[in-house]
Amino acid sequence: MKRVQFGHSPVPYLFVAPQIIIIAIFFLWPAAQAVHQSFLLEDAFGMSSQFVWFRNFNDVLSSPSWLKSAGFTVVFSSLVAVLSIAISLFLAVRADEVIRGAKVYKTLLMWGYAVAPPVAGLLGIMLFNPLMGDLYILFNKMGLDFNHIQNGNDATFVVVLIAVWKQVSVNFIFFLSGLQGIPKSVTEAATLDCKSAGRRFWTITFPLLAPTTFFLMVINLTYAFFETFGIIDVSTKGAPGGSTATLVYKVYVDGFLGADMGGSSAQSVLLMIMVSVLTVFQFRFIERKIHY
């Protein structure tokens, strides 16, 4: 179909120019730099570099520490996405049912949204401080032998907890507005058709929230991949022994602390590819099934 075209004016381009310039400077150019660097081997002082083809990628993919980090990232991201979606869905459904003081509940549950990831990390690390952290002391008093400084699983628990806590309020807002978007008469019709509230939720409410859930799945995975950097940097710094270092955190550690620009760039290029594949997969296969 041929659309009617009118004479173009250059003004629209002027309006989008600032955004394009920002994307070019802060995304396209660094991304190109990373791709370029990933083929180079640089000396520790950045004085000279050498073109080495795919050696950096080869090194990264065969390095046990990268594989460990990739494994952790998968576990961490899945846990964070699934837990924070499940918890916030539960909270949103309950808060939506509240009649008295509904505003207070909703406001309190949304507050976490205003907390920046590093602040959340700071709060978390204070709760788990071996000297004065309330949760640390509580867990050990319960006889759990909790030690996130030395035990990788315990450390994973800490970062997952902080990351989920931080994300719940964001998801909560979306789920709440999703719930309020379901026509009241539809839920009322369902109460006439189905006595069990649980069954009603899974057959009517949850399917109607599917687009919201899918959207949050994408948002949360991206969050767990990238935005949890601040939380990890403030709380565990990837310790113990790199067992809580996500791929993004490892890029930073290897590149900026380890000064291995080539290897770090190769990692970030791999990360970019992984995220693109994941996103395409999500939109291709999952989204198609959930629209009504």
């Binding site: 008469s185 539809v186 019709a189 006595k195």
Partner: peptide
């Protein structure tokens, strides 16, 4: 008695069909 157990059926103004 719960609405579902009253043995009534209702037709709503805006149809209230389950869209999915």
């Amino acid at each position: 008695i719960a609405p579902a157990d009253r043995d009534i059926a209702m037709v709503f103004q805006n149809y209230a069909l389950y869209p999915h």
